[in-house]
Design a protein around this nucleic acid. Structure first.
Lengths: 237, 237
DNA sequence: CGACGGTTTGACAATCATCAAATACAGTGG
DNA sequence: CCACTGTATTTGATGATTGTCAAACCGTCG
């Protein structure tokens, strides 16, 4: 029962990790075993706290989460997103959380070994390494978005990134993917207000480039969006 | 001669690394040896290129550098700064540069082993680890700065960070430190225009909180600045 | 039905960008 | 030592983007 469920859910996480490095049967077995002990976390719950030690690495099995920083006056900034198949705190050997991690939707996670605990040379270890590089690449992308892009461009760039990442995980149709974020969460991600997010999304819809609504995003003009922000696909290899 | 020079310059880099983890004589010897083969890089020169492999880890011995992303229309964003004692590309085992690294001043670097090449358990390896954590913490700080802070606050936050980092390296007097960046570089770091940087700096001077000029920054009211952005010192331990 | 979270709309204000030019500064060569 | 050149800083006038405040609307769930 639990195992069955784990296999159902296994799709995105295993799909992503094997896209990062060609996993071997042993690696997949390890992951599937870990996924028999999944943990469900309700939306809005913080499951990692800044400054606290992290006992084990975490694998996102389903749902969306984020790292967030909240200021004393209530302003919030989402630092990065965690999607199915993403690893949390996997590569730091002294694992003190640098930021709070918050579930944006209901989330399923499972605990997995730290990088250092894997057999050296294992394919899974390689996947960890690539995953870490991508994490950093996404942080850098977030910095340019916030520093140099207009509201419209920020959306274009973020949606392209999400499309790419969700494609890796096997979620995402041709030019369509789930986007279970409120406009307020998008605002906190993009450094805008929710009012301005709303207006920007309306503009994009009117222009026919992007439709966001009902938990789904549709990119009608991937080329155009990519040109706008000279988007470069993060190379996996 | 070369050795003498290395020892002269050794201060900041060794000071920083031994502040991150208590280095042992062997570690320091390794570093000093590495520093006998220093390399000078003139300002404005890119010495790491995005997408290219990086042969060895790099230790900043003197000068300031940054990771930068340039868009096709000329907009630039500085992603992070590298100060004396900082390590570049030290912790990725598949070292493909995620961003171009540019010398902002004349810079001295030397090549050092990758993390994985150090003896396991070495103190220096520990310092590498802490340095990597700090790198990431600074990226996250940069994201909140750009996403949620006003121009004035961005400066407050950045200057506090620089003060802290330069103190680690033993550069930085009580509330004063070298800031060899042009206003345009500051603008590219903070996601502003150089004109607005200029006006913000004037405002800060008029208010008596901060003086920036002649390559030196002076913080006249550290408490006030820290309160403004609820600055938390990055914990090293 | 009522309550609640989320989206949408409008009117207005503030921050920051843009453009263009003046000024200061540093290094170079006569 | 001085003009000369290029880069960096400063100033002013104007406009665009985005934020703020407040209220209406909408859908879902108990």
């Amino acid at each position: 029962m639990t195992l069955l469920k784990a296999i159902d859910l296994a799709g995105p996480a295993i799909s992503r990790l094997s896209a990062l490095a060609p996993l071997q049967p042993a690696d997949i077995a390890l992951l599937k075993t870990a996924m028999t002990r999944c943990q469900r976390i309700p939306a809005r719950r913080e499951f990692v706290t800044e400054g606290n030690p992290v006992g084990q690495a975490i694998l996102m099995v389903s749902g969306w989460a984020c790292r967030v920083r909240t200021l004393s006056d209530g302003r919030r900034q989402i630092l990065s997103l965690f999607l199915p198949g993403d690893l949390i705190c996997a590569h730091r050997e002294r694992p003190i959380a640098l930021a709070t991690v918050l579930a944006l939707t209901d989330v399923t996670i499972c605990h997995v070994p730290f990088r250092a605990e894997l057999e050296p040379g294992s394919r899974l270890g390689e996947a960890y390494g690539v995953s870490g590089m991508l994490d950093e690449a996404y942080l850098l992308a977030q910095i340019t978005r916030l520093g140099r892009f207009s509201a419209y461009e920020r959306f274009a760039d973020l949606l392209l990134e999400l499309h790419e990442r969700l494609t890796l995980a096997g979620i995402a149709m041709d030019r369509q993917f789930p986007l279970p974020l409120t406009q307020e969460a998008l605002a906190d991600m993009l450094g805008l207000t929710s009012v301005h997010v709303n207006r920007t999304l309306q503009l994009m819809r009117r222009e026919g480039t992007v439709t966001v609504g009902g938990g789904i995003a549709t990119l009608h003009d991937v080329e155009g969006l990519a040109g706008l922000v000279d988007y470069r696909r993060a190379r996996v290899a």
